[in-house]
Design a protein around this nucleic acid. Structure first.
Lengths: 374, 374
DNA sequence: CTGAAAGCGCTTACAG
DNA sequence: CTGAAAGCGCTTACAG
């Protein structure tokens, strides 16, 4: 019964079976072993076979550190982000990891603590590996600050908010067109009969977020009044506080929220103020977090596929460092309005809700309606 | 005005200023440089000063790969997990990262795709770095399967579900006592006057989850009937489906859910079935995700600090690989019942709710009550 | 197609 | 306290 022995020989193997051990066992030089693990075409297929078999038998795995040091292909990405648990960055991270794993890359993550130069510099320095590459998730100023500290010789791809016309985004970067989606969502609310739409924004550091400017643009196009947007943080708590301010104003009948957590907070505040949703106020979120459809009422929101975005970003990076696997601009994921229960016509002056106008369809935007939950 | 030049000299520095460059510039041998960056005590403080200054001036950073290859301290952890975006693992990951960053460690993450031996083996092999260490987040079978493939010579710490009496946990591991917390939550529901409590469980692969056995134990202690628990997945969708089954049964007046997402799904199903919460059914969650307090009704749940758990786990790991910074068993975070709005007395036969009995206080369990939202 | 050389940037003993 | 040697496991030219 030699099976168990063989098994333990494998799993208990000394951590140091090297290229030379393989070479000796296979009866070739260690350079040849190097060639087969690097898939060099100039190896006779019979010797390649033999080496491959020995590698498997001995359980050899190339030492990454040695490889990196010698200038070989390291196949690693590190992603730099200011947060790993919020829906957007966490999903993007997940997408990067999957895409990376698919092609044998390993992933590291570094978080940048603040936008203070000392923290950003430290984060960048810890992020740069000998022959590695970088992905920066830059939804906020912390991420963007990285730009000033990056050496010019490291391959890097960016996940960023959609750039404005006069912004020049980093060379290799991906984004979702949130502006068009926000406009679409606002138009939808208007089409329901609301006189205007209020906005509780995610944090902004360049004046306007893209979501904000889409919202504003829809309002202006429709000749509707443009209320002052409320600035908020990313969390439900912030949305709750903004919601409390809004709830006191009877003119507020529709609110576009910067994300679904904020929307949840706003909904809670409205609930506490005795303003039923959507009968009295309509709420629309942004992102479509997996649990948004289970809110009561189920949240009408804009779906953004951050995971897909992360995957596309990695693909872009790969086109920079990989053996030119794919070229050309890859398809970015599209935002998509998902209509559920939290938005409806404004309360009619006579109690009867007015008939909704038809929403203007926009190009490049899919609209999906979910009547039933799944 | 030499300032800008000096600045660009720093940020644009060639990526290859080595230990020898520093040595030459400082007028010492490169071994001495190695000593100061490794904080060797046997360096004259004046030469240490000089070297440190040169390092700063030249912008030298030690090459991690070379360091690892030469057998130096690498200061890296890789965390192995089956998921990076669910609340538990994502929070634990966040905790590990923070704790790691604090002491200058870098973090990598590898996800194991399935419990199939081939996937687990692959994940482990990609996770083992030359001189690195490992943290396994093993809330599920994928994580636990790792145990069989780990070489014995790599330092590893585990985040696991609380072990049962007859389970022997990995040597270095941390957990939260979910069993006691589940028991406490169930007792709380019983104390409200419910005849029994139903349970929608997170996935289980060893028969019972710890949460399930705490729930069962509370029921048995009270002489209450023990309904068959409903097995579910981690997500709200699963909770929703379980909730639909439960909603049809009028005997169901209280449900302990395996996590907050499941609770949200159950609440939604109850809502659709026309069963108001908590007037007609009481729902208690598990975890206390940040948005649980903003649900309507606000969710009564058991808080678990997974981020703190991640930190403790890293501290444990550090005691294995670090220069014996701290010894002894570290304090694990405690679970804690958080009473909000989603649980109340069962519907009284005469319409009037019965007076709640007093909850039995349990040792080692803090109970906090939040009347107002913040 | 395959072998012998040199070196990646560091560290750990070993001498002084 | 500080310098000279050897080597970590690999890869890229360079020869055959």
């Amino acid at each position: 019964m030699p099976a168990p022995a063989a098994l333990s020989e494998n799993s208990d193997r000394s951590p140091s079976v090297s290229i030379r051990d393989v070479a000796r066992a296979a009866g070739v030089s260690y350079q040849t072993v190097s060639r087969v693990i690097n898939e060099s075409p100039s190896v006779k297929s019979s010797t390649r076979q033999a080496v491959l078999e020995t590698i498997a038998r001995l359980g050899f795995r190339p030492n990454r550190a040695a490889r990196a040091l010698a200038g070989g292909p390291v196949q690693s990405v590190v992603v730099l982000t200011s947060n790993t648990s919020l829906y957007g960055p966490a999903s993007a991270l997940e997408g990067v990891e999957e895409a990376a794993r698919e092609v044998g890359f390993i992933m590291g993550v570094r978080v940048v603590e603040s936008a203070a130069p000392v923290d950003v510099r430290a984060a960048v320095e810890r992020a740069i590996e000998p022959a590695g590459s970088l992905i920066v998730i830059a939804f906020d100023p912390l991420g963007m600050a990285v730009r000033d500290f990056l050496p010019h010789d490291v391959p890097v791809a960016w996940v960023i908010p959609a750039p404005t016309e006069d912004e020049v985004p980093p060379k290799t970067s991906v984004w979702i067109d949130e502006r068009a989606a926000a406009k679409e969502a606002t138009q939808y609310l208007l089409s329901l009969g609301h006189k205007t739409v209020h906005h509780v924004s995610i944090p902004s550091w360049t004046g306007e977020t893209r979501r904000m400017s889409g919202w504003r643009s829809a309002l202006e196009d429709a000749g509707a009044p443009v209320p002052k947007p409320l600035l908020s943080g990313w969390s439900a708590q912030w949305g709750y506080e903004a919601g409390q301010k809004l709830a006191g104003n009877p003119k507020v009948t529709a609110v576009l929220c910067g994300n679904d957590d904020i929307a949840l907070g706003v909904m809670r505040a409205m609930h506490e103020a005795g303003r039923p949703i959507p009968a009295d106020v309509s709420i629309v979120g942004f992102d479509d977090v997996p649990y948004a459809r289970f809110y009561t009422p189920a949240l009408t929101t804009v779906r953004q596929d951050f995971k897909a975005l992360g995957k596309v970003c990695f693909a872009q990076l790969l086109s920079l460092v990989g053996p030119s696997r794919q070229a050309g601009r890859l398809e970015y994921p599209e935002a998509q309005l998902v209509i559920r229960e939290s938005a409806g016509p404004p309360p009619g002056p006579l109690g009867g809700p007015p008939k909704p106008r038809k929403a203007t369809p926009r190009r490049a935007m899919k609209k999906s309606s979910e009547k039933a939950l799944r």
